[in-house]
Amino acid sequence: MLNFLTLIGRVVLGFVGHIGRLVIFAGTALSHCVRPPFYPRLIASQMVDIGYYSLPVVGLTAIFSGMVLALQSYTGFARFSAESAVANVVVLSMTRELGPVLAGLMVAGRIGASMAAEIGTMRVTEQIDALTTLSTNPFKYLVVPRLIAGLTMLPLLVLVADIIGVFGGFLVGVYKIGFNPGNYINSTVDFLEPLDVISGLVKAAVFGFLIALMGCYNGYYSKGGAQGVGAATTNAVVSASILILTFNYIITELFFAT
């Protein structure tokens, strides 16, 4: 019994310690975001990596999501003669939920893993220690550019994903189901409100920050060679994905709860 309680105590203490370390890491990183020196070249490079190179995977995810959404909505809504709502459902689902969440999850897999692996390898090969000896703050050089790039590029990616997703719905609606193109576009635009798009973009900014934070945090504290870097990569993706889904609910509640 005592062993069992000891085990629970150890797990709880470990978890609390982990959360505390993450909060301190995030606070330190944020404080460095507003203090010079800045590394614009590195920020630009990370923006290209996160924004430009994630476009194909996010675009493909968005177009198929939009297409399947239109198809599912149509077959479902046809049961109670509400087929005309397909365009509204597609645009609202994409802008409010599917655009930010799917883009966030895809980028977490692509970028969060790569950040954790790169920084983790730098940690276990003493490259981060080398930065310190070369009078360069590792937070400013490694973490801040990734956080800024994540925070700014994910909203842009989600904006593109929204457009591509709606276009996917349009393709299925018009060419598969047989809606009038003009009517479909009108239905899409008429019921869309600025808050629908803005809430999605706010979500995207938060998700981008969380993805970069978890990638950097897990990489920065990785240890134990190749196995440690592998574990850091897995933890970065899993923790970022869970946080994305958790914060998705919290932000939705903040924006739309009556």
């Binding site: 390898t121 730098m122 090969t125 490259q127 310190t132 000896t133 070369l134 009078s135």
Partner: peptide, 20 residues
């Protein structure tokens, strides 16, 4: 202040620790 002190230092790491 550590940055200013570290300007006095050079370090050769065991695995060289070059930035890939």
């Amino acid at each position: 202040q550590r940055g200013a002190v570290n300007k006095k230092f050079g370090m050769l790491f065991q695995g060289a620790a070059l930035f890939d």
